[in-house]
């Protein structure tokens, strides 16, 4: 299993694309926000957590089509799924590798963009924390969408459309937790724990369904 993980990581890092494009997209969305809403710093810091999270969400979604595509194109996906390890575990490892190279860079890039949005330290920390525990859920839910759209042309766009409604709860709890960390009366722990629960729940369900779909669609 560890061999599979290192393989996945090496592949993902070699094509290099994921992290770079994701962070670049993150930068793009954050940068155009002031053009749309005006440079008022107070406003920006108020909507900052929301804008950051929308960017993180979209960057994750748009990178998901790379989860299975490369392996599907050269046929190695079939080999992996038929190999000694259970297909679900294979998909789980692919998701983890994908998150480490796409989701995690976004989390790490958050402070910089938080400063662009004139956010204060507690807000930035809250976004980072929620992104850390919430973006895996996006990857795991997205795995099902990726499995279903794996060999479609324009599959990436369709994937985003299909998966977007399913990740709305992640967005809701993440932003709610962030507001809770910043503004006192609102709770932080409840939505934060719900986020963790979502990630754990879909860590099991997502790869399970994705693996089943991939195994039964080959050929």
């Amino acid at each position: 299993m560890r061999a599979l993980l290192t393989r996945e990581l090496r592949l993902a890092l070699r094509t290099g694309g994921g992290a770079f494009y994701g962070v670049l997209f993150f930068l793009a969305v954050v940068s155009i926000t002031p053009f749309a809403v005006g440079p008022d710093l107070k406003l920006l810091s108020t909507i900052g957590p929301a804008i950051l999270w929308i960017s993180i969400l979209l960057a994750n979604l748009l990178g998901l089509d790379r989860l299975f595509q490369a392996d599907s194109e050269d046929g190695s996906l079939d080999l992996l799924l038929l190999g000694p390890h259970p297909a679900t575990a294979v998909v789980l490892v692919k998701c983890i590798a994908h998150w480490l190279t796409t989701g995690l860079p976004l989390v790490i890039a958050t402070p910089v963009f938080g400063l662009l949005m004139n956010m204060q330290a507690p807000a930035i920390a809250a976004v980072m924390a929620t992104a850390l525990v919430g973006s895996p859920a996006i990857t795991f839910i997205g795995a099902v969408g990726a499995a279903v759209t794996v060999s479609l042309p324009r599959g990436g766009l369709l994937l985003a459309i299909v998966v977007l409604p399913l990740v709305i709860p992640v967005l809701i709890f993440a932003v709610s937790a962030t507001h809770g960390a910043v503004a006192d009366p609102a709770p932080f722990t409840a939505p934060f724990l719900l986020l963790c629960a979502l990630s754990l729940f879909f860590a099991v369900l997502g790869p399970l369904i994705a693996a089943w779909t991939l195994r039964h669609s080959t050929g």
Binding site: V148, V162, P165, P169, F173, P191
Partner: peptide, 19 residues
């Protein structure tokens, strides 16, 4: 598959939207 995954998610979505 997508229909069923959506179906499973609908209670979650409903709960989160109510929240």
């Amino acid at each position: 598959v997508v229909t069923l995954v959506g179906f499973i998610n609908i209670p979650i979505i409903k709960f989160s939207v109510d929240w």
